[in-house]
Amino acid sequence: MVLSLLAFAPSGFAQDPSQPVGGLSMTSAQSVDGRITSVDANARLVTVAMSDGRTVSGKVSESVGGLDLVKPGDRVHAVFEETVSFVLSGPNTATPTNRAVAGMAASGPDRMPAGVVGSKSVSSWLVVATSVADNTISLVEPAGGQVHTFTVRTPEGRAALPRVMPGDKLTVVHIEFVFAGVMREDR
């Protein structure tokens, strides 16, 4: 986990300490395109020339059908979306149970290859220390263990850092979604 952002609503702890103090959610999305340059259906290896000039090779999962339909020149399109939410709570606030779920769906054998993968994780941490001078926050799992120190990188997060106190809780919700498919253009 890389904590690159920490920003919270301007509300303070003078309010009900059993309620979340504030939070932030960010979403980033990226899409990539390319063309198949080679296919080895028996070894399940595919090479793609990406639109940015890179060449990428990889093995296609056995769970993805239709690889025998793919030919050099077919187009590949993939979309990646990620949402990360941070919620800061006071020491007496109940936080969600840590958990992670993931799922996958792929094309059948009679269709061009396509697939989707999604995951969601929720993890709550206990604030051990903050350093305004170093722009860092140190967190540990509520049950204990190794302390992890992260750099707070945004101006909003750095401005909020003096209000984050040892004993506060930080819950991180991380959602990822990837879709990729192969298409044949009419020629």
Rank of each mutant, 00 (worst) to 15 (best):
M112Y: 13
M112H: 12
P113E: 07
P113A: 09
A114V: 08
G115I: 08
V116F: 09
V116W: 09
V116M: 14
V117P: 08
V117I: 15
V117K: 14
V117E: 11
G118Y: 12
G118W: 12
S119L: 05
S119H: 10
S119E: 12
K120E: 13
K120G: 11
K120C: 09
S121V: 08
S121C: 08
S121F: 06
V122E: 13
V122F: 11
S123C: 10
S123D: 12
S124L: 06
S124A: 12
S124I: 02
S124W: 05
W125L: 00
W125I: 00
W125K: 03
W125T: 00
L126I: 03
L126D: 13
L126W: 09
V127Y: 06
A129E: 06
A129T: 02
A129K: 05
T130E: 06
T130K: 04
T130N: 05
S131C: 02
S131E: 05
S131H: 01
V132N: 10
V132G: 03
A133S: 15
N135W: 07
T136G: 03
S138A: 11
L139T: 00
L139E: 00
L139A: 02
L139C: 01
V140L: 02
P142F: 04
P142A: 03
A143Y: 15
A143S: 14
G144F: 06
V147G: 04
V147E: 06
H148T: 10
H148V: 10
H148W: 08
T149L: 01
F150V: 01
F150L: 03
F150T: 01
T151F: 12
V152E: 05
V152Y: 06
V152R: 05
V152D: 04
T154G: 07
T154E: 09
P155C: 09
E156P: 05
E156N: 11
G157L: 06
R158N: 11
R158C: 10
